[in-house]
Design a protein around this nucleic acid. Sequence first.
DNA 1: GCGGTTTGGTTCAAAAATGAAATTAAAAAT
DNA 2: ATTTTTAATTTCATTTTTGAACCAAACCGC
Lengths: 286, 286
Amino acid sequence: MAVGGPLHKRILDLYEDLPRGERRLADLILKNGATLRNEAATDLARDAGVSKATAARFFKRLGYASFKAAQQEVRAQAAAPAAERASALPGFGSGGVSISAHLDNEVQNLIRTVEQQRSDELASAVKLLLNGEKLWVVGFGDNYPLVHFARAQLIKVRPDIRIIPLSGFSVPEEFASISSADVMLACGVGRRTRAFRNITLSAKRAGARVILLTDTASPGDAANADVILRCRSIGVAMFDSMTAAVSLLTYLCASLAARIGDAAIERMRLIENIHADWGDVIAGDL
Amino acid sequence: MAVGGPLHKRILDLYEDLPRGERRLADLILKNGATLRNEAATDLARDAGVSKATAARFFKRLGYASFKAAQQEVRAQAAAPAAERASALPGFGSGGVSISAHLDNEVQNLIRTVEQQRSDELASAVKLLLNGEKLWVVGFGDNYPLVHFARAQLIKVRPDIRIIPLSGFSVPEEFASISSADVMLACGVGRRTRAFRNITLSAKRAGARVILLTDTASPGDAANADVILRCRSIGVAMFDSMTAAVSLLTYLCASLAARIGDAAIERMRLIENIHADWGDVIAGDL
DNA sequence: GCGGTTTGGTTCAAAAATGAAATTAAAAAT
DNA sequence: ATTTTTAATTTCATTTTTGAACCAAACCGC
């Protein structure tokens, strides 16, 4: 989710200074904006593992009169069309975003992403990628570049990596080849489309395992994904930042390569040879 | 940089539970592993903006007898590396690359990339993107995901963004439409292919302006590119890291959006509307 | 070795954070 | 309209965190 408005901005501004309990709340809200919209303060507090008192104080600290005030603002925002939100975002009119603000934010994205990663989930993701007969890398819209990233790396260390959607081919026809021995890596950072949900469901129905890469995991996701990898994608200006997602994918693929071992090295060597045969590569500099 | 030793792991394990001041220390150390090796406890505390007492307690909490003990461990790790680390580095056999090593490296990539960026070059890159009649986003092989990525963002704020190569179409035929009023964003991180060199030359010959995104700019590049954006792409394991490149592109596009201003907002609103018309988007969470 | 200096570590009182319980506000049910 | 129920907020006592001041030990130059 992009900087979703005043609330998100306030949280990020204060993030460094938040005490432990309040930061737990902040994380929860940043992770899934819907929480604040839908849940009651009591539940929010319970989910974050803090007392109701802490929750109340948290919103006070953010500058709201109360929890309710904050919730109302978020709800109002969700109702307004997205483009209007954009104009309220920083970096406009004022004539630009500072690069150091960008850097700070990106580093935070990376650190928080790694930090909240449960190592057993990463391990089982790697294991799935290792054992899947075919791998399906899936993502729509803004996630499609991520799909390309993932495939570019995966194809270096193992065969049978398929992309969905494929350059305008009809998805169902392509996806029909999925089997229960396959594994799907689903990139769903930021907004998810109907197509994304459909394909995830289809994969589950076919008995395939699903690894979901996302920023805000909703309760429903847990049911449809075998492994969930969360990454923080907060952007300092108008776009979400895919930086942490890319980084996580890179790490995932490197781990997979390590697990595969010699066969991966052999494969890469083969690839190099083919490159050489084609005379593709420029040896020195331009 | 520093290999993610026990210390990094301990920090990540406890991170969620650290109080505010100690977390500041944790962030500092995670951001740059070298700090702990080189600085004195007093300086470390000062840098983090906490008292010495807090620093001392922090290392106690991590399970070390004292600050010194932790520092010694880190130093021992850094000293041992050449042989031991090398064998473990690609992560083969030994069973993987440590994620904290990865994190450390990625953060360094980001920081270095931003640091070495000359702001006037960024500014002129934005200006070119702003004024180009058509934009051509170009890149081959491992760079193709970057191309996707750049286009996905650029197309949100202005029209006429073309990709080369395009899903198997012949490059020359496509590229023939380039004019001297156009601008080419050339992604050439890591290995460059012959095709890449050719297309850059063609662009220059056609009189178009060229922005080159690369990791290691060679002397020859200066002649063929109007603006060169350098990024660090060192990977901790077997793959180069495109993380910094992605981040830089994101910043570039955000700056462009800011420069375009209202027209960009208007365009995004239009895009949102079309999305809405299509019933594409899932509103709440899954 | 010996004053002086620097740096790591400890104590203790003040400040901040926190949760349980009390209080108030608001919504539902009657 | 009044009671009942539920949820948000405030109070307050307890716990945790924190830094200033204080000690100890290593490190100098002599």
